[in-house]
């Protein structure tokens, strides 16, 4: 668990604190996305957790230990860190990059070697192909994968990610987001990630904290954030298409009701998003789709049900339908 209690950062020579007495709790195994415009204090908050920036006041507890009392260098070896620029060491091979923290921790070389292969496999890079290569010969997406493998190598319980997909193109970004969300959940990592992209925040975060001028304006599940933005700023930030975004959070399977679909309507998989189901309806000129689910039989999703979901004044969540 990561807990911030009244954490404040006032940089010397500045009138206003960059981070102003924030409280935040991230339960074990969950991901919290910090989001906000540039200069809102999100990156400063993240960098205080591994003490790349020293907080001016407040307490930061990671796994029950007050990190403001720990030796910062030792602390960082037990917290995974991924940044936008990746920052792979260009003079070291991919294997040596991944081995960075295990070697700093003094693991024996046999264990390190096994771990390198395991980590490369985990992030979808064939160890035999990539071990000996240099970062310069990798694509942007591959570098980002190595960056995550390097951060995970010493199996830290906590991961900090600063715009981890900022440097790759949108197509690769979407794929990496899906893959890494799954990996982080499977490994049970507690994650704090910083992003300025609302789509990334709602896709990756179990919870999203919207920051402005050093404070957390709203800290909620993605669904509630989109359904009930607390103030005009949050509403502005989540965008005018927030109704559509909510639909993308839910699967057709979650939203469908039990009924026999009429013949001739479009068919969608139960794992597709409600947004995809809506597109299928619109393109076929139908007001309903059949939802195919091998386990639960045939079901139907109607345009009316989707309307009810999307209406911002009726914040129905999928489970209530």
């Amino acid at each position: 668990m990561i807990r911030l209690e009244g954490v404040t950062k006032l940089f010397p020579g500045q009138a206003r604190p960059a981070v102003d007495a924030i409280d935040l709790e991230v339960p074990d195994g969950r991901t919290c996305a910090l989001i906000g415009a540039s200069g809102c204090g999100k990156t400063t908050t993240l960098r205080m957790i591994n003490r790349l920036i020293e907080p001016s006041s407040g307490r930061i507890v990671v796994g029950g230990e007050d990190v403001t009392r720990a030796d910062p260098v030792q602390l960082r070896r037990h917290i995974g860190y991924v940044i936008q620029g990746v920052g792979l060491f260009p003079h070291k091979s991919i294997a040596d990059n991944v081995a960075t923290v295990p070697r700093l921790l003094g693991w024996d070389e046999r264990r390190v070697a096994a771990r390198i292969d395991e980590m490369l496999g985990l992030v979808g890079l064939d160890p035999a192909t990539f071990r000996g290569r240099r970062p310069a010969s990798l694509s942007g997406g591959q570098r980002q994968r190595v960056g995550v493998a390097r951060a995970l190598a010493a199996d830290p319980p906590v991961m900090l990610m600063d715009e981890p997909f900022g440097a790759v193109d949108p197509v690769v970004r979407g794929r990496l987001q899906r893959e890494f969300k799954e990996i982080l959940a499977r490994l049970g990592k507690t994650v704090v990630m910083v992003t300025h992209d609302i789509n990334e925040a709602i896709r990756m975060g179990a919870r999203v904290a919207v920051m402005r001028e050093g404070r957390i304006v709203q800290h909620d599940t993605p669904d509630r954030l989109l359904g009930e933005p607390k103030d005009p700023l949050v509403m502005d930030f989540v965008g005018t298409d927030r109704a559509l975004k909510r639909l993308s959070l839910m699967t057709a399977g979650e939203a469908a009701s039990l009924a026999t679909p009429p013949p001739g309507v479009p068919v969608v998989e139960s794992s597709s998003s409600v947004q995809d189901a809506l597109s299928a309806m619109l393109s076929a000129g139908s007001d309903r789709v059949a939802v195919r689910d091998p386990d639960r039989g045939s079901r139907v999703l109607t345009l009316d049900a989707i309307r009810a979901l999307a209406a911002p004044d009726q914040p129905a969540s999928a489970s209530e339908l």
């Binding site: 790349l52 602390l75 940044i83």
Partner: peptide
């Protein structure tokens, strides 16, 4: 590059070790 230094710091290199190794 700055991101390399930041990565090294974030990974837990001490000051002198960062100087020597990176």
């Amino acid at each position: 590059p700055g991101d390399i230094l930041e990565a090294a710091d974030g990974m837990g290199y001490g000051r002198w070790r960062r100087l020597g190794a990176i």
